[in-house]
Design a protein around this nucleic acid. Structure first.
Lengths: 148, 148
DNA sequence: CCCTTTTAGTTAGCCGACTAATCAAGGAGG
DNA sequence: CCTCCTTGATTAGTCGGCTAACTAAAAGGG
């Protein structure tokens, strides 16, 4: 069976995404924000004080991953945990003042790079691109379900 | 500035790629091959006995990353290092027999999933999709250059 | 020919992701 | 009630990525 992985679309896609992350890292370098944290900051900007389980679900990581990430961000002074008043198991995560400032910078960086990524796409191409990604997503979801 | 990251194309793309990797991991589970190793195996299948610097370039990781990865794969019996006869600095990487078997399985898995990913794409859509990814790639390359 | 620079690889230390195992608090049923 | 089960979070251990600092071999240049 001849399958040229180096020419596969998934391979190209994975390379592009790596470049994307690298660009983001460069733009946010000086805010005590490390590579994996932007998605979390965006979610907190939308809605402060969420519980960890919910945040983990939104940024597509496991709760265990989030625990460690939040530990570091707490140490860096970006966020703080506050225990829930009703349910003593859950802890809610809030942006600090420093976190809010960093979040603004990160949002600007993400916006800038998103513009750069798609500046040569027409509106139709952007819509089509989203549709194709969504199609991939759905097919991979199905595959995941049938195999596990 | 209103920028809804949770709706950004890069966010969707990153989620799709995570799903892709998860699917690959599930299919190759029982071959002593861990998540990051398939790209390296594909390159070795194409051309055995390459030097580490060149392999690192091909799979888009730093030489330091590759050193550690190859250590583990050597321990798992998938590959072996042999010193170059002429240049005593470089070491060349070869697939073992076990490595060759695993590589065949991995290639099948990658092919299967690639099919699944794009089974609902027309030929034109696949061509367009590649063109769009390449466009993103080029724009991100330029950005990277101007900022570093 | 020796000294300096370049180059291939390694090591150490950090961050992000995962699974599996554990802990602690809440809930449900007998 | 008290036990058992479920659920949110954490810990430990593994893998994959990076940078920075280092080692050792090769290549140049005076």
């Amino acid at each position: 069976m001849e399958f040229d992985y180096s020419n596969a679309l998934t391979h190209l896609m994975s390379h592009v995404l790596k470049l994307y992350r690298h660009n983001v890292d460069m733009l946010i370098g000086e805010y005590d924000v490390s590579p994996g944290q932007p998605p979390l900051l965006m979610r907190l900007a939308e809605k402060d004080g969420q519980i960890q389980k919910e945040l983990a679900r939104q940024i597509h990581v496991k709760p265990a991953t989030l625990t460690v990430m939040i530990n570091r961000m707490q140490k860096a002074g970006l966020v703080e945990r506050k225990p829930d008043q009703i349910d003593q198991r859950v802890s809610r995560v809030y942006l600090t003042e420093k976190g809010r400032l960093a979040t603004e910078a990160v949002k600007n960086a993400l916006y800038t790079i998103e513009q750069k990524c798609f500046e040569h796409f027409s509106s139709e191409e952007k819509i089509l691109f989203r549709r194709l990604l969504q199609q991939m997503h759905d097919d991979l979801e199905v595959l995941r379900m049938t195999n596990s």
